[in-house]
Simulated scan of single mutants.
Amino acid sequence: MDFDFLSPVDGDLLDEISNLDRQSIGANIKLHTAEGGIPEMDDVQVAIIGVKENRLSSNRDDALHFYNIRSSFYSLFPGNWHINIADLGDIERGAEVEDTYFAVQSLVAQLVKKDIIPLILGGSQDLIYAQYRSYDTLDQMVNLVNIDRKFDLGDADNPISNESYVGKIVINKPYNLFNYSNVGYQTYFNSQNEIELMERLFFDAYRLGEISADISQIEPVMRDANLVGIDLGAINAAAMGHGLHVSPNGFDGKEICALARYAGISDKVSSFGIYEYDSRYGSLGNMLVAQMMWYFVEGVNFRTNENTISAKQEFIKYQVPVDEDILVFFKSPVSGRWWIEIPFLANVNTKLKRHTLLPCSEEDYLEACNQVIPERWYKAKRKNEV
């Protein structure tokens, strides 16, 4: 793998690690250092990457660094994990933003092909565009889940920014996007035009209040994701503890960590990014980000690998007649999780065959038994027909 554009972890952090408990994450993580170079990656499952790019953000931190997040994360103790983590250091700003995108795209693609999950610590959230473009060479349609108070569709005719990158994902070739799900949007931060566009594109959107009332409904959404991004602006100001966060509403610390764990435990999520970080955050914000990272890795450790053909052969099948359709549900006898079959048409792109089973909840099955068609099933079926 090509790691030429990565700078090593700050040497001062190595001094901190030497004083940590030998059971801490910092004492056991593999590090890219100036002296030792890139660590051996053969047995690594999660790789941390910092990306010092935020030039397309309106509120940018010109001295962006990830020292304090790393210090907080290294100080934590792992759970009962069997996961090897590497910290590969940082991708510095390129001469142009596009140069940074290229480095992110290249590195993420290489890691995903090696079954190593990149955990990206980013500046501005337009970096999701580069994270998404990493899948161009992987020959698959992509489901993107974005935890954000805004849809970030923007005006696709204008240059890309941290508030318009989703529009670029939708219109720019190659067309790899199968579904976009926004988790935690707040209506007053989004125009009615964007809300209507989300509906016309059959994308999924979940309001903050709806999720806070029952956060478990997002587990099936995460289970169907290939890449996940979190905008730290989706967290309320009290949880982040810094004046840069001006919104009193948003996810609290417990909720955002639960969402990070759902992303980690999903068998399909192959890259994960935390964006809109600002190194001016205080100790409270840095520790919360570190705990989000911790919960993501915790989720990865407890994956059940139910995406395999052999695992699916053990699923229990249920058929439910609803109007003129027969909805086919599957339940895992191991995890108790549910899926619903999407009837794909014979003349569509064969890449979509990977999405024939759509994760759902037991509640979706029970509602179907009461003759209510799950909305996500309907949207997925409509996307296949248009």
Rank of each mutant, 00 (worst) to 15 (best):
E219G: 00
S247T: 08
M240T: 08
I69K: 08
P8A: 05
M222F: 04
H65G: 04
L119D: 07
I169S: 11
V221Q: 00
K268E: 08
M222Q: 01
V269F: 03
V289D: 09
Y74F: 06
R70K: 08
L138A: 10
R207S: 09
I326S: 13
G50E: 00
L358E: 10
S247L: 06
S134L: 01
I256Y: 01
Y318A: 09
S57N: 14
I147Q: 03
F251W: 02
R382C: 06
N190K: 09
K383R: 15
L127G: 00
T137I: 12
I48K: 08
V221N: 03
I120D: 01
I373Q: 06
I316F: 13
S191M: 09
I38K: 15
F5H: 15
F66G: 01
I316P: 13
M292Q: 01
D214P: 12
L232R: 09
R280Q: 07
N182T: 04
D157M: 10
F330T: 15
N249G: 15
R60E: 07
C360L: 05
Y129N: 08
T137Q: 12
I211F: 03
D224Y: 01
N172M: 13
G250L: 03
N384Q: 12
I309F: 12
I116W: 09
E314C: 13
L244T: 08
K30M: 12
N226E: 04
N68Q: 06
F272A: 06
G336S: 01
N179L: 02
D252S: 01
Q371M: 08
P374H: 00
N249M: 12
K353P: 03
R223W: 01
W377N: 07
S310F: 10
K168V: 03
L345N: 14
D42V: 05
I342S: 03
C360D: 02
A263E: 03
S164L: 14
I373S: 12
L13G: 07
R55E: 15
S72H: 10
N176Y: 13
V183N: 00
Y295C: 08
G154W: 09
Y365T: 04
K113Y: 12
H355R: 15
S75Y: 06
N146H: 05
W377Q: 09
A47C: 14
G123A: 05
Y281V: 11
E314P: 15
N179T: 06
N384T: 11
N370S: 12
Q105N: 15
R261W: 11
D267H: 00
A156G: 07
A260W: 00
I265Y: 00
E40M: 15
I342L: 04
L20I: 05
D364H: 01
E210R: 11
V44A: 13
N162M: 10
Y185P: 00
Y185S: 02
K331Q: 11
Y277T: 00
L201H: 15
P78A: 05
N236F: 04
R60A: 10
V297L: 07
N19F: 04
W377C: 13
N226H: 11
A263W: 03
F5T: 14
Q45C: 12
R376N: 01
K317W: 09
S332A: 02
V51L: 01
D364M: 01
G241M: 06
G250D: 04
L64N: 04
F3Y: 13
N190P: 05
L56P: 13
R93Y: 14
